[in-house]
C-alpha cells in the first residue's frame, strides 16, 4: 500500500512540467490566471453557506453533552421515527431497485413507440416540486381518490395516512436515481460476453444472471443507496400522505420541524445530527459493499 502510494506521488511529480517539480507545491504551475480569485471566492462562499451553518448544527447538539444528546435521541418517539424513516426508505429503495432496473432495461434494450418521451418522463420526480408530488399522491391514494377508492373497496387496503402511503411517496421520489445510475452502465455493456455465453449454449436467463447482473450490480447498489439516502431526508412529498401520527407514521424530518416549532432547538439539532450520522454510516457500509463487489467482479 505504502509503496503504491509513494509511486503515485512520484508519478504525479514527474508529470509536472517545470524543473522545480521536487518542491512541495500547493498547486502545479499554470499560465491561466484567476486561481487565487476563484479559489478564494469558492472557499468563502462554501464556508459561509455550507460549512459554517453545518458546524452550527454540530455545535448546538454538542451543547447538550453526551448524556443529554443520548437522552434526546433515544426517547420512544424519536426511536419510532427512526424506524419509520429508515425502514420505509429501505422498502422504497428496494422497490426502486427492482422497478428502476426494469425501466432502465426496457429503455436500453427494447424499442417501442414513445420511448424518448418515457425516457424524459423518468426525470419528473427530480423536476416536480416535492409539495406538488405530495398533495397529488395524497389525493390519488386518499380513501375517495382515483386509486385509493378501488383499493379500499376491492381489497380493504388503506394507503393514505398509513406507512404504505409513505413508502409510495418515497418510491416516487427515489425512482430516477436507480434508473439514471443503471441506464448508462447497461448501455455501455459490451455484447461480446453475452455472445460468448450464447454460443456456448447458455440460456438467456443464465446469461442474465451470470453476466449482465454481476456487471451492473455495483451501479444498482449506487442507485439503491442514492434512493435510500434521498428517502431518509425527504419531507415535502411525504407529510401530506403520511397522516403524521407520532410513533406510527411520523418521519424524522417532521419530528425535527415539530421540535423547532416547540423552540426545542437543541433537541432538533440532536435529532438532525443523529440522522446525518446514521445515514453517513449506512452509506459508508454500502460503499464498502460496492467496492467489494467491484473487486469480486473484476477477478
Amino acid at each position: 500500500m505504502v509503496a503504491a502510494g509513494s509511486g503515485a506521488v512520484a508519478a504525479g511529480r514527474e508529470s509536472a512540467v517545470t524543473v522545480r517539480a521536487s518542491l512541495p507545491l500547493f498547486r502545479k504551475p499554470s499560465v491561466l490566471p484567476g486561481f487565487g480569485l476563484t479559489l478564494g471566492f469558492t472557499l468563502s462562499y462554501l464556508g459561509f453557506i455550507v460549512l459554517l451553518p453545518l458546524a452550527a448544527l454540530i455545535l448546538k447538539s454538542s451543547g447538550l453533552g453526551w448524556s443529554g444528546f443520548w437522552a434526546a435521541v433515544t426517547t420512544p418517539r424519536v426511536l419510532a421515527a427512526f424506524q419509520v424513516s429508515f425502514g420505509l426508505s429501505l422498502a422504497a429503495a428496494l422497490t426502486n431497485a427492482i422497478f428502476g432496473f426494469l425501466v432502465a432495461w426496457v429503455l436500453v434494450r427494447y424499442d417501442f413507440p414513445g420511448k424518448r418521451l418515457v425516457d424524459a418522463l423518468v426525470d419528473l420526480p427530480f423536476a416536480l416540486p416535492t409539495a406538488v408530488a405530495g398533495i397529488a399522491l395524497s389525493a390519488l391514494y386518499a380513501p375517495n381518490g382515483w386509486i385509493g377508492r378501488p383499493l379500499d373497496e376491492l381489497f380493504g387496503l388503506k394507503v393514505a395516512f398509513t406507512p404504505l402511503g409513505i413508502a409510495i411517496a418515497l418510491t416516487f421520489i427515489g425512482l430516477p436515481f436507480v434508473v439514471r445510475t443503471v441506464q448508462p452502465i447497461l448501455q455501455d455493456l459490451p455484447p461480446e460476453e453475452e455472445e460468448a455465453a450464447a454460443s456456448l449454449g447458455a440460456s438467456r436467463l443464465q446469461a442474465f444472471s451470470g453476466i449482465i447482473l454481476p456487471a451492473i450490480l455495483p451501479a444498482l447498489v449506487t442507485g439503491f443507496a442514492l434512493s435510500f439516502a434521498r428517502g431518509v431526508g425527504e419531507y415535502g412529498s411525504v407529510i401530506f400522505i403520511a397522516g403524521n401520527m407520532p410513533g406510527l407514521t411520523e418521519i424524522l424530518p417532521l419530528l425535527i420541524v415539530i421540535k423547532l416549532e416547540q423552540y426545542d432547538y437543541a433537541g432538533a439539532a440532536a435529532v438532525g445530527t443523529a440522522m446525518l450520522g446514521v445515514s453517513f454510516v449506512m452509506l459508508l457500509i454500502l460503499n464498502l459493499l460496492q467496492q467489494w463487489m467491484r473487486s469480486r467482479h473484476a477477478r
Binding site: P53, K60, G233, Y265, A269, G272, L276, S279
Partner: peptide, 24 residues
C-alpha cells in the same frame, strides 16, 4: 456536493440555529 446529501429540513434548521432568536 455535500448539500445534496443533507435533508431539506436540516438545510433550513442550520440557518435557524445560526440566525434564529435562540440561535448563535
Amino acid at each position: 456536493d455535500l448539500p445534496f446529501s443533507v435533508s431539506p429540513v436540516i438545510s433550513g434548521l442550520i440557518y435557524v440555529l445560526l440566525f434564529g432568536l435562540n440561535g448563535l
